Simulated assay, not measured.
Amino acid sequence: MTLNVDEGAPASAEDLAGDSHTLGQRVHELLHRQPALSPAIVLVLALIVFSFLSNRFMRPANLSLVLQQLSIVGSLAVGQTLIILTAGIDLSVGAIMVLSSLMMAKLVSHNGLPGGLALLIGLAVAVLASTINGLLVTRIKLPPFIVTLGTLGIFTAVTLLYAQGQTIQLAPGSFLLKTGDIHSIGSFTVTNGVLLMLALYIVVAFALRYTAWGRHLYATGDDVEASSLAGIQTKRVILSAYIVAGVAIAVAAWVLIGRVGGGDPNSGANANLESITAVVIGGTSLFGGRGLLVGSLIGAVIVQVFDNGLALAGYDPQYQVLATGFLVIIAVSVDQWIRRVKA
């Protein structure tokens, strides 16, 4: 109901409530259209706060370190985003990454294979492992959480058995270590791994935005039944998300090798949860169908900024875990609010 108010008369309480409601609707619509906006605001605020807490935070050397640290989780977040966009989740991405990286390193170090061939085999392993997850979800119709929780244990065990408790160091100059090569721009440095991660984001973001596959992926995640009725092969779309995620995991495995100098079965212990955290903080809905890949990149940066900033400020490492937990809860709460409020 609309109330007529005389010109110049003071606004009534109902009018003020209506204005407030309109503002809330505008904020809701903005966040719904731009899911990466809220994490971008959080990132800017975090950069400002930590620059005051530590005078070392904004130095080029430290920012370079933050970029190098996020290159692994950032790469994993690409694959995790694709799966979460279909209303799924993958708890095994980190385990697949470690298995793939260890296999690449061992094939070069112990079997004498060329680095390029080892990379292709590691890529095949990562894609195969992720495809298994996708087949269990789409063909046997098991819940993604249960499937990937089970394969997390399987892939972790396979990795440890394959490694036999050994860490594999590669000789300097190995092709697989190229992702660790550093390029300097003044005091700022960037590795090939960071550049590879950014290239991965550009390619996948383009596919999501400008191809039929991307549109079908969003539609399937938003409403799988309606998408199926519209003629979309939803099972194939979901399976394709896991397959492409496997490619992203293989990229992360290659970046990991460059970071640690070889294959380490104990590396990436928290990569599974960190990738999910980055995607959720980045504004991608756990219920599927809404989110942007750039948001996941911002989310990965936020996680590393909080870890790095709190460490430089001298806070106990547990505060890093605490801050991340709060960010996840807030991000999910905002997503729930966006879905609940009526336009």
Rank of each mutant, 00 (worst) to 15 (best):
M1E: 15
T2K: 13
L16I: 15
S20G: 07
L23K: 11
L31I: 08
H32V: 11
R33S: 14
P35L: 11
S38F: 15
A46M: 11
R56K: 13
A61C: 01
L63W: 01
L65Q: 13
S71V: 04
S75E: 05
T81Y: 10
L85D: 05
G88V: 03
M97D: 09
V98A: 05
L107W: 01
S109V: 05
H110A: 15
N111L: 14
P114F: 12
A118Q: 01
L120H: 00
L123V: 02
L128E: 00
S130G: 02
G134Q: 03
T138P: 07
K141I: 07
P144D: 05
Q164T: 10
Q166T: 13
Q166A: 13
L170H: 01
A171P: 03
F175R: 01
F175P: 01
K178Y: 07
I182H: 09
N192A: 10
G193T: 08
G193Q: 05
L195E: 07
M197P: 10
L217R: 03
G221P: 04
G221A: 05
D222P: 01
R236N: 11
R236S: 14
I243M: 12
I249W: 00
A250Q: 01
L256Q: 15
G258L: 03
G263D: 06
G263H: 00
G268R: 01
G268T: 01
A269V: 11
V279I: 09
G283F: 09
G283Q: 09
T284Y: 06
Q304W: 04
Q304D: 02
D307T: 13
G309D: 00
L312D: 04
G314R: 02
L322K: 04
V328E: 07
V328Q: 03
I330A: 15
A331T: 00
A331F: 04
V332E: 10
Q336W: 12
K342A: 08
K342P: 02
